[in-house]
């Protein structure tokens, strides 16, 4: 299927908006860098102030790249979940992936008090957290996958995901009850989400995971379209349902798991962005939705981050608060309007 004229126009608009927001995101913050200087800095690497260069290359640029990776990855995984589960409220959270990640991180931050100091310091390093949260989301994924082999009904898998979520948050509560205020604060900061402070090495690693996840998602565009008719019709037109479901779950867990590991649990992006794409493009064709969700995911995350860093001010708001403030009303509005999802 090729794109219509209107869709092509929208794509160009979104692309322009994304590039513009990318530059604005880099330019704004506690220290404002003029847009012209940002462009100079990015392309000719010459800026009028050395401090700007440091801010650009060490803070703003990596953060903007992270925002794009996080926004696109979470949004695509949300799109896959919504079609697979035939549920407009599905997202990477529903599978319990981020709860699993939280559990892993909670064990490390809150649970290491029981270990000798020299061992706990190894675990508490940034990489320790990444490994723990990836492991946590991966374990929950494996559990969900195991259960899903026994269940034919996708709605049941959704409920299983929710149950894993409650289960892990219960354990996190117990752990918090027994831990010190200092550790609790550290865990709370992680759970508020953050896309700054990623080193270039971490960004490289994250982008590999996100690209693999998005690559797998691109491969299932045709089966996703078939799934719009429901599981039985999809099988009757030659789709291997089990294989498709496996690919979708793998792609989602790679995306959600790696992003949560590096940036903390970021709420609502995975849920709200696919709906924005569906509303804007008025289609269910996943070839269109794939590209529009990618672009909108990057745009929304760049927007949220620009707001979160509060231009001309020293404070930085938790990114999770901003995504929720934007995402929650969008979801409520969608439900009230009862639009076709």
């Amino acid at each position: 299927m090729s794109f219509t004229k209107k869709q092509n126009l929208l794509f160009i608009l979104l692309l322009v908006a994304m590039v513009f927001l990318f530059l604005v995101n880099i330019s704004l913050g506690s220290v404002a860098i003029p847009l012209k200087e940002v462009i100079n800095g990015l392309f000719s690497q010459e800026m009028s102030k050395e401090s700007w260069e440091i801010i650009l290359w060490n803070f703003r640029f990596p953060k903007a790249i992270t925002a794009i990776l996080v926004g696109t990855g979470l949004s695509i995984s949300g799109l896959l979940m919504q079609t697979l589960f035939r549920n407009p409220l599905a997202g990477p959270y529903v599978l319990g992936l981020s709860s699993g990640a939280s559990l892993g991180v909670a064990f490390i931050i809150l649970g290491t008090g029981f270990l000798p100091t020299f061992i706990s310091s190894i675990f508490l390093s940034n990489y320790g957290l990444v490994v723990a949260s990836s492991l946590g989301s991966f374990l929950v994924l494996m559990a969900v996958l195991l259960v899903s082999q026994k269940l034919k009904d996708t709605m049941a898998i959704l409920i299983v995901g929710l149950m894993f979520g409650s289960f892990t948050s219960a354990i996190v509560s117990v752990l918090s009850y027994f831990s010190s205020a200092e550790k609790l604060q550290k865990f709370t900061f992680w759970s508020m989400g953050s896309i700054s402070n990623l080193s270039w090495n971490e960004i490289l690693l994250l982008s590999v995971f996100v690209l693999v996840g998005i690559g797998i998602s691109f491969m299932v565009i045709k089966p996703l379209n078939a799934l719009l008719l429901g599981e039985k019709y999809a099988q009757s037109i030659g789709i291997n349902y089990k294989k498709t479901r496996f690919l979708i779950i793998i792609a989602t867990s790679i995306l959600a798991g790696s992003i949560t590991a590096f940036a903390g649990p970021i709420a609502f992006i995975g849920l709200a962005v696919p709906h924005m794409a569906k509303l804007l493009f008025q289609t269910s064709n996943h070839l269109v939705l794939f590209w529009s969700t990618l672009l909108l995911g990057a745009i929304v995350m760049l927007c949220c981050d620009t707001i979160a860093q509060v231009p001309e001010n020293d404070i930085t708001l938790p990114i999770n608060a901003i995504t929720s403030v934007i995402g929650a009303p969008v979801v409520i509005w969608l439900l009230v309007k009862k639009k076709r999802f």
């Binding site: 719009l228 429901g230 030659g238 569906k278 008025q282 269910s284 064709n285 999802f341």
Partner: peptide, 30 residues
């Protein structure tokens, strides 16, 4: 096959539904 059950909610048009019948013959992108 043609079933009685309702289709899941989506933005599919009638033309797109009919076009999905061509999936066994189309390439990997449909």
């Amino acid at each position: 096959i043609v079933l009685t059950e309702k289709l899941p909610p989506s933005n599919l048009t009638v033309y797109e539904i009919i076009a999905l019948g061509r999936q066994p013959y189309t390439n990997w992108l449909g």
